[in-house]
Design a binder for these strands. Structure first.
Lengths: 149, 149
DNA sequence: AATAATGTTGACAAAAACGATAGGAATTAA
DNA sequence: TTAATTCCTATCGTTTTTGTCAACATTATT
């Protein structure tokens, strides 16, 4: 029951991009420095985020990353799914193509896992990037803006 | 966001013990056969379950495992915690001794992880073994009782 | 005494997570 | 056009997790 660093770093990265909206493309260097993440590792995280249509890249000098949609339209769940795959406490209740087990109509624990999955998605999909970025902006006024985890 | 086999197997094992209440101690052999789990692996799973006071062991011939308390008093969450550790989507919001990060009062994502943790525990602690075992008993009447995942 | 069961430890392999490195390819600014 | 900047991809190594197996000690029953 643990999120990997990929999902957590990814959310922070996108949050950083959202916070710098209006400054033009944000480089991985900027994100890595501000968030204390390895820049190379960050490179790998940005790829699936781009493929999922959450961010767009701008190549060349003065390039970087920008949000692909409005912050209001990006759910935290989208970011987690892009980086960690479909949400599934057990394979048999995966959001995408759940694994069929021999007697799932006889399985006692399956309904429990399904309820757990729904509960998780409900939380992750209830937060949009805009809501989180707003809080971030409020916090930044009081400090340097360096935040973690 | 995935439960390991330890937790899932463990729940099924305890469920099997609960279902065989009245038959005396249940051996790992019986459980392993019925659930299709490696007996050696099961050995390792039983240890933390015993340490957590969920089951008791009976050594020697005709020994095995029995529930340490009434099935009504055992929550699914207890079993998961015993086998997977404290519930924590991120270390900073662990149920037990959360890891302090430098500026947690400035962290934007932390409240989100905390809410996620609460949502997970709420589901896992809402199910008792008795409730699940009841369903299992009802199902067994209609079939051989071999169920998975 | 023999048997059947748990308790404990260690070793092991496979997979995933984590992070670093290197070398392009593409674009823009100068 | 050249050089700088940046994305992009692939690979590699380390560590941790996951899952399995085996050997031996301990205990209780028969």
């Amino acid at each position: 029951m643990r999120l990997s660093t990929k999902g957590r770093y990814g959310l922070r990265a996108v949050l950083e991009i959202a916070a710098r909206h209006g400054e033009g493309p944000v480089t991985t260097q900027t994100i890595a420095q501000n968030q204390g993440i390895s820049e190379r590792y960050l490179d790998q995280i940005m790829i699936p985020l781009k493929r999922s249509g959450i961010i767009n890249s701008v190549r060349g000098a003065r390039g970087g990353y920008v949000l692909a949609k409005k912050a209001e339209a990006i759910k935290v769940g989208d970011i987690i799914r892009a980086l960690e795959g479909p949400i599934a406490p057990a394979d048999c209740v995966s959001e995408q193509s759940p694994l069929q087990c021999r007697r799932q109509e006889m399985c006692i624990t399956r309904p429990l896992w399904a309820k757990l999955r729904d509960s998780i998605t409900e939380v992750l999909d209830s937060y949009t990037l805009a809501e989180l970025a707003e809080e971030a902006a409020a916090m930044k006024k009081e400090d340097t803006g360096h935040y973690n985890i």
